[in-house]
Amino acid sequence: MWWLIAAVGLGIPLVVTAMPEFGMFAVGAVAGAVVAALGGGTVPQVLVFVLVSVALIAVVRPIAARHRQQRPQLASGVDALRGRQAVVLERVDGSGGRIKLAGEVWSARTLDGDQVYEVGRQVDVVEIDGATAVVI
């Protein structure tokens, strides 16, 4: 019974702090409860708790760390607009203009202030600066 209470007690900080180690200790406590239900003594219960908890931390924690470090491969928002092509709707130069990008009309300016793009020309979006597309 005490092992199940410990498992619940360890589950609470897991939810509050989002630290997966508490969940691994809770699973170890459940394993200790199983040993107790099978009639194991105090020493085997504690050993099973420690072994299961340490094994989970040793195996699961490095896998979780690798997944946390990976960046998502799918770009969204303005990041998805970089590198896309657009069509010039109004003359675009270093001070401004308009383009049609991804079905929407955007204000735009050239990356090189001396460059000028006329209506109908296709341009590439280099970056998004606020609500302005920077094009080449």
Rank of each mutant, 00 (worst) to 15 (best):
L74S: 06
A36H: 13
F22W: 11
V30W: 09
S107E: 10
T42N: 09
L74P: 00
V8N: 04
I99N: 03
A80N: 10
L101K: 01
T132S: 06
A6M: 08
V87T: 13
L4D: 05
L4N: 05
P72M: 15
L74M: 13
V8Q: 04
H67D: 11
R121T: 15
A64M: 11
G77H: 12
G32V: 06
V119Y: 04
V105P: 03
L10D: 01
V87L: 07
I128D: 06
D124H: 11
E127Y: 12
V54P: 14
L47Y: 03
A7Q: 02
T42C: 07
V134Y: 05
A102Q: 10
D93A: 02
D112L: 02
A29D: 01
L81K: 08
G39H: 14
V119E: 15
L74C: 05
S76V: 02
G94R: 10
V125D: 00
V8D: 06
V105F: 05
W3Q: 10
G103H: 01
V59A: 13
G23A: 06
I99E: 03
A29R: 04
V15L: 11
V92P: 09
L51A: 07
S76E: 15
G96N: 12
G23K: 08
P13H: 12
E21C: 05
G41C: 10
I12Y: 12
L81N: 12
A75T: 12
R109E: 10
A58D: 13
A86F: 03
G103I: 01
Q85S: 15
A80S: 14
P62K: 04
L4A: 14
V87K: 06
L89F: 03
R91P: 00
A31H: 01
V50E: 12
V134S: 06
A65D: 10
I63Q: 08
A80C: 09
L101F: 00
D79I: 05
R61G: 09
T17L: 14
I136F: 07
G96C: 10
W106N: 02
G28N: 09
M19E: 15
G40W: 08
G94W: 12
V123R: 01
F22V: 00
A37T: 15
E90T: 02
A102P: 01
G23D: 07
E21M: 10
G41I: 12
I99W: 04
L56I: 09
I12V: 13
E127P: 13
A86E: 05
S95F: 09
A18K: 08
I5Y: 03
W2A: 01
A29H: 04
R109Y: 07
G77A: 13
V8G: 05
V78H: 07
L111C: 03
L51I: 02
D112F: 02
A75V: 07
A65F: 11
V16K: 11
G83W: 03
V123E: 00
A6G: 08
T110D: 07
I12W: 13
F25W: 04
Q115M: 14
F49C: 07
F25G: 03
V92W: 08
